[in-house]
Design a protein around this nucleic acid. Sequence first.
DNA 1: TCCGTATATTACCTGCGGGTAACAAAAAGT
DNA 2: ACTTTTTGTTACCCGCAGGTAATATACGGA
Lengths: 240, 240
Amino acid sequence: MDGSASSPTGQSPWMPFESRRRARDEKREAVLRTAVALFLEQGYHGTTLNHVAERLNITKPALYNYFRGKDEILYECWAIGAERVDESIDEIDATGGTGIEKLRKLIVSYAEAMTTDYGKSLVRFDIRDLTEHNRRIVRLAKKKIDQAFRDYIGQGIEDGSIRACNVKLSAFAIAGSLNWIGHWHQPNGALEAEAIAREFAIRLTEGLAIPSARKSMPKSTTKKAGKPPVRKRKSTGGSR
Amino acid sequence: MDGSASSPTGQSPWMPFESRRRARDEKREAVLRTAVALFLEQGYHGTTLNHVAERLNITKPALYNYFRGKDEILYECWAIGAERVDESIDEIDATGGTGIEKLRKLIVSYAEAMTTDYGKSLVRFDIRDLTEHNRRIVRLAKKKIDQAFRDYIGQGIEDGSIRACNVKLSAFAIAGSLNWIGHWHQPNGALEAEAIAREFAIRLTEGLAIPSARKSMPKSTTKKAGKPPVRKRKSTGGSR
DNA sequence: TCCGTATATTACCTGCGGGTAACAAAAAGT
DNA sequence: ACTTTTTGTTACCCGCAGGTAATATACGGA
């Protein structure tokens, strides 16, 4: 319990009472980082804006310089997570490969996302706390992700890398396992993010895969997803 | 949109303004049924006690004849769901069978539970909305369920019905798929509860099972879980 | 040095919703 | 029929948290 003590509170760009000059975007992001962490810790409704502000060494009304309201903060947290997954999907779509290869790549990406704060917000936040407008965006994005799972499975069935199955239910089963990670994973836990992702990519597909008669599984599937130049987020498009 | 109309509002024992005489327990249950439905529809924080009362043709303070507060209602909803799963586990433990057989039974029971309102409350309600005391109970019960999954998998590995694997992660993967049902399932959807359960029992274990060399899968696994005499709930043990 | 803009602060408003007090009307007992 | 208990109702309280208004301070440029 410090509050007014001089401890450098983690990653806040607001130094207790002095040099404040950092760029606006950095502060925005700092707010989101703090907010998402608190929302996950204490729940959206258990977190007050005062609480968020306090952790940043500022006061509540200051937050309104960067966001229009609490629900917008929630939405933006969610959007960051969604965008990352979206990028993964785009990458996978861009590169070729059989259905099951793509599926495995998506599983790895998604699992890793679920071990990050923003990723967790995808599955732990309640869509009903958003504006109707943002709610629609969220639903759309979720549908797209779900569709990716189904597409890859369907494609795998066509190209012979996945055996016939109920595509919809299989997608649900896989997505469910992955989403659940966002509920049980804790940063300091025994399981490393990458290890989880690797294990799940195997476990969740071993029932679906058709042994390719040649080699059991291409090792290249697990290759580190080389991040491209860290594309900038498109500035708050349609939030409210 | 009716409010004062004469439509028999679902299952409320309180007729709009007349004959009220039913037994106390029935009313308690009616409150819980309504509450759990509303909590799932609109979220716990999006549901007010007035809203609950309104659906039952009564007023808010009347609810306090049956419950000490909103969080107790939440807890009791949760408890009903938990108790059902608990009973399933006890039944499975009582009957014999190999590890994988038990695991499949648990998957079927749990999946079916996830298609009911009370079952959904197990995974859709936020534990942080409870009293510290009830929170402890919930955590304990969840641990027991998780342990059942792990036990059956471990047992299966020992008796040779399941191949070696990471028990903890496998249990998480399976539980995750099942829990997810509680998020996407809707009563009027295309998927029938039993069909979902059957499909998941196969899909989630086909990667783990060791083909028994003889027959691919015992058909008896899917047998209808004959419900015993509908045991009475032990009256509100330690709620607050 | 002075002004304008950005960004923070203090003080306040307000509505919502959980919870309670006081009272009324049935049910049940005798 | 009278009283007691149970189970409703109406009317109210009040605390919290989101949001706003008015104001002060820092910064950047002429």
